[in-house]
Simulated assay, not measured.
Amino acid sequence: MGGRMNGKSLLSKTMTQFIICTVIILLLATPLFYLLTKYYYAEDMIDIIEATQQGHPLPQLDLEEDIMHGVMIQFALISGVLGIAIVFTMHFIARRLWKPFDETLKRVEKFRLESGVVLQFPDSDIKEFNRLNQAVSLLMENSMKSYRTQKEFTENASHELQTPLAVFQSKLDLLLQQPDMTEQQALVIQDLYKVSGRLSRLNKNLLLLAKIDNKQYPQSDTLDIVAVLNELLPFWESLTGEITISASFREPIFVTNGTRILFESMVNNLVVNAVRHNQPNGIIQLEVGDQRLIVSNTSDEAALDAKLIFNRFYRPSEKVKGNGLGLAIVKAICDYHGWTITYQYTNELHVFTIDFAPSRSITRSRP
């Protein structure tokens, strides 16, 4: 944790710099004060001395007028000096004094909790800025500790839950195979089986998010987005039933860098979300072009809250099935690869757009 606690306060530094600046400008203005004294305050006295020395009669004196003019000019001169000193202090000196604060702001703006790196701030000779840097560093360290604890808990809990859930499901399978089971018992076991399946999916999603947060997936894969989508289309068509999937790929080959297993998880979640929120005989559209993947679907539901839909465990209605992690996983995968995802409700369509441009995608034509 950098930063020295010794040094002057910001007010003291500012006042010192202002006084020094004022003194320097006053010294530079000394010739003006000399000319003011010579031609106004001492002008009549000089005329009397010269007339006496030369034996001439005393000239007419306008001492009162000269003093008034001199006072006004002196007031204007001093006001100008102070004005210049204030402007110079506020524009140049204050900018230099506040430079450490601006540097702290720039570094804080670049801070990301997921990076796992606590920022180091430059030393300053101003007490308040050193106190600020130490307070921000301490806040970051505590946030990092809490974040790491939360991630470790999520990952460990997900790992520990895998075995009991698998045992629970296997026991339910054995119960379902019992020959003397009544219909009511079978219904209860089927309900438990569904709950177990939901818990298993929730556990897998939490584990996936924990691995993404911990950056446990490589990003060195080369993905042909169009080829992967073409491979997955038959599987999606078998799931959608009466819902129609239409695909429009404007580029035969669309290559980007990323992790294939995460990309497949992302598009699977988007398609499953489109199926879940669709309407009977609805449509799901997949479009690839201009370094973007667009997934849109018809729906009887109104527009969703674009600020909340990517939050974990967010569900717009209790009637909606799912654990509220699908779109959160999509957002986490996009952030992991440097892609951006946006949501819009246009022409009664829910539209999700993934922009691959930040990852410097490469579009080629098939030879």
Rank of each mutant, 00 (worst) to 15 (best):
Lys38Ala: 14
Lys204Tyr: 03
Asp102Met: 09
Val320Thr: 12
Leu199Ser: 12
Leu27Arg: 01
Phe168Asp: 04
Thr256Arg: 05
Glu160Met: 15
Thr244Ser: 10
Ser200Phe: 09
Ala42Gly: 09
Leu304Cys: 02
Leu293Phe: 01
Glu318Ala: 11
Ile84Arg: 06
Ile333Gly: 02
Gln17Val: 12
Gln162Lys: 13
Leu327Ala: 02
Leu77Phe: 03
Thr104Glu: 09
Lys151Glu: 14
Met1Ser: 12
Gly258Asn: 01
Ser146Asp: 14
Trp236Gln: 00
Ala135Ser: 13
Ser79Gln: 10
Tyr40Asp: 11
Ser238Leu: 06
Ile126Cys: 05
Ser79Glu: 11
Leu138Trp: 10
Gln169Ser: 11
Thr89Pro: 04
Ser170Asn: 12
Val288Cys: 14
Asn156Leu: 14
Asn273Arg: 05
Ala94Thr: 08
Glu109Pro: 03
Phe33Asn: 00
Leu27Pro: 07
Arg107Ser: 12
Ser246Lys: 15
Phe92Ser: 12
Asn214Lys: 07
Thr37Asp: 15
Glu103Ile: 12
Gly83His: 07
Leu139Pro: 00
Ser115His: 10
Gln216Asn: 04
Ile73Asn: 06
Pro252Thr: 00
Pro122Asp: 15
Ile261Lys: 10
Met45Ala: 13
Thr16Tyr: 08
Glu287Cys: 09
Ser359Val: 02
Asn323Val: 12
Leu161Ile: 02
Ala157Ser: 15
Val255Asp: 10
Ile126Met: 07
Val267Pro: 07
Asn133Val: 03
Glu43Ile: 02
Gln344Ile: 00
Gln177His: 10
Arg112Trp: 05
Leu174Cys: 03
Ser196Asp: 04
Pro57Arg: 06
Arg131Pro: 07
Leu77Tyr: 00
Ala227Cys: 06
Glu231Ile: 01
Leu207Cys: 00
Asn323Pro: 07
Arg201Ser: 14
Ser200Asn: 14
Gly116Cys: 03
Asn297Ala: 04
Glu109Val: 02
Leu239Arg: 08
Asp290Ile: 00
Asn205Pro: 00
Gln178Gly: 02
Asp47Glu: 13
Pro280Glu: 09
Glu348Thr: 06
Leu26Cys: 09
Ala94Cys: 11
Gly83Trp: 06
Asp173Leu: 05
Thr149Asp: 15
Thr149Pro: 04
Pro59Ala: 00
Leu35Val: 08
Val117Cys: 03
Glu114Gln: 15
Glu155Thr: 07
Lys13Thr: 04
Cys21Gln: 13
Asp305Trp: 01
Ser220Met: 07
Asn323Gly: 13
Asp44Arg: 06
Ala227Tyr: 05
Leu26Glu: 05
Leu206Arg: 12
